[in-house]
Amino acid sequence: MKSFMKNSAAAMALIIGANAAAAEGNLVLYHWFEYIPQDLIEKFTAETGINVTMDTFDSNEAMLASLKAGGIGTYDVSVPGDYMVSIMAGEGMLDTIADGELKNKGNIASEWADPSFDPGRKHSIPYQWGSTSFAVNRDVYSGDIQTTDILFNPPAELQGRINMLDSQGEVMAMAALHVGIPQCSNDREQLKALNAMLIEAKAHWASFNSDTAKEVLVSGDAAVGQIYDGFSAKAREEGANVEYAYPTQGYIAWMDNVVLLKDAPNRDSALKFMDFLLEPENIAAVTNYARYNAGVNGVEEFLDPELATQPEKNPHDKVGPGVFIEVCSQEVQAVYDQIWTNVKK
């Protein structure tokens, strides 16, 4: 038994060693689904000779879980949302980018150069930013949609035809806007109200799904879908008669960021990839594909002209505030988890 263990340990070491040797010129990317055009990855490989391997995730939390369960040391870069960058930095999962390591760092647009979730951009660069609210099928409902009532207190035509994102953060933040309480409030009455409101609203929802959030709108399975602005634009371009709402109560703003992970097996490749994504032409290709916004100077000339007039990017003048998802304290998060279980039980 002992010698068997020794042998297998030796074999394992050999395999790992072989992998490490072959890993020069590789990049292992952990990315959202449907968020980077294949052409762009090929362009990066053509320019640098670095082969890209990509795994995908469908929520910030799922990514965090998989990195915690052993993904650190496997992946080089990932693409967390704003609040998740601060969580990951707090958990010590991010590597620091030293001054001068990114030659294109100066391209970052000034408003995104020093964000609260990563002061001084020590671990991350901007990827895309946009908003999360919801889209309504105008063939089904022609009334006023600029209100969170559409999701949480829907008119009869829309009841039972609503898809929510299967993501606690986005549902809770939107719900807090609807009830009119601060995010991560620890006030018991407010939390009780949030719980009661969500349980009542759930009766009108058809499903929770993030990765088919667009498809259910295109196919007509759902008449309302909580959705990101670019996804809503894509649903419209794919033929769904949907309108993206900017509720007067407010909506969720977000920014996704490319981060350098701790113990990245191909740190140099990762930095090259980040520099590549800071070139206006390249990040503009992502924007043209995903229909969001880049956080890099000089992208304008490379952008699809249709983007400027895209209705999903041009809120009406009565729109409420765009709020970033906040990171709750452990105590409040425990209550949020309880509420989420109550909603989904």
Binding site: E61, A65, T341, K344
Partner: peptide, 10 residues
Amino acid sequence: EEQFKGNAGN
């Protein structure tokens, strides 16, 4: 699944 992949993280 939610305990490992979701927000709950328990």
